[in-house]
């Protein structure tokens, strides 16, 4: 689900651009550390593969078919950091060349699919693969789609897009089916890939720190609770998110107030530009900090 430009309000896309870009810098650093140079073409070609894989239709029930989304598959094959970079490149090309998703909302899309979606697809594999590998892979596929969709809905709701209760339930059901299909496709594809060459997939790492387990459990709990609350009180989320977004959310965008300027329009545009410059600065700063630390 790629959010085009024009859907999200300025504080929402601004906040997610600020959030996504430094996270992306971290992912790129980690990916670069974990891979040797020959993997650069590999990552690009894997992105092209996920793109092209959407042409292969998987029959699901009579008359309908689904296709791979790919976040979980990439995370299992390449590791989460590299998968984030590849998913981000896919989103960038889709936004630029295929008019699928916006430019200002790219941060939100990257956060939903390339960061949250990839992590949600990878954590079950990392944590449960020793106990039951197949269900871990399946769960990864399911969660990656569900988490991405949940974030997209939250962003739209926070931008004041009305979500009537029935429509919300309907689209949630739709996404749940889509998530189950993605889980099944991921599992089948991983199985078929392993039969061809078992070295393509990264073995799940042996040691798992207990902290990671707790984080994963907490994240899962939060996600389930969020979905339950959302399905029960959709008006509640709107009330929570739309009119009274916390003050700090506006603060990075200079709160739409640049002193000494009369026109409110000019003020907002200036605030928008200031926000963008701030994003750019934050990314530069984060990049420097990370590179210094890893050097």
């Amino acid at each position: 689900m790629h959010i085009p430009d024009g859907f999200l309000s300025a504080p929402v896309w601004g906040a997610f651009d600020v959030l996504a870009l430094p996270a992306l810098g971290i992912a790129a650093r980690r990916a670069q550390r974990g891979l040797d140079e020959r993997n650069v073409p590999l990552l690009g070609v894997m992105g092209a593969f996920v793109f092209a894989a959407q042409m292969i239709n998987f029959p699901v029930g009579p008359g309908t078919s689904g296709h791979l989304v790919g976040a979980a598959l990439l995370a299992i094959a390449l590791g989460p950091a590299a998968a984030s970079v590849v998913m981000t490149s896919i989103l960038a090309i889709q936004a630029l060349v295929f008019q699928d998703g916006g430019i200002l909302s790219l941060g939100a899309n990257i956060f939903n699919m390339a960061i949250a979606g990839v992590l949600a697809g990878y954590l079950p594999y990392r944590l449960l693969a020793h106990a039951h590998r197949a269900s871990a892979i399946f769960l990864g596929g399911v969660l990656s789609v569900l988490v991405s969709a949940a974030f997209a809905f939250a962003e739209l709701a926070a931008s004041g897009v009305p979500m009537p209760r029935r429509l919300l339930l309907l689209s949630m059901g739709f996404f749940l089916v889509g998530a189950l299909v993605e889980g099944a496709i991921t599992l089948a594809a991983v199985g078929a890939m392993e039969r061809l060459n078992p070295h393509w997939l990264r073995a799940p790492e042996q040691k798992t720190s207990p902290a990671l387990r707790w984080i994963a459990a907490a994240a899962l709990l939060l996600a389930v609770a969020g979905i339950l609350i959302a399905s029960r009180y959709p008006d509640g989320i709107e009330h929570l998110a739309a009119p009274s977004a916390p003050a700090w959310l506006h603060a990075p965008l200079a709160g739409y107030r640049v002193h000494g300027i009369e026109s409110p329009w000019l003020r907002r545009s200036l605030a928008g530009a200031a926000g963008l410059i701030l994003i750019y600065g934050a990314c530069l700063f984060a990049g420097r900090l990370i590179s210094r630390r890893s050097a």
């Binding site: 990916a31 670069q32 650069v40 073409p41 070609v45 992105g47 092209a48 590849v86 490149s89 090309i93």
Partner: peptide
């Protein structure tokens, strides 16, 4: 100042897409 790895991957992705 976008991460160089990301730019390279986009480059390859676009070429082999």
């Amino acid at each position: 100042h976008l991460p160089r790895l990301l730019v390279l991957v986009i480059h390859f992705l676009y070429r082999y897409l």
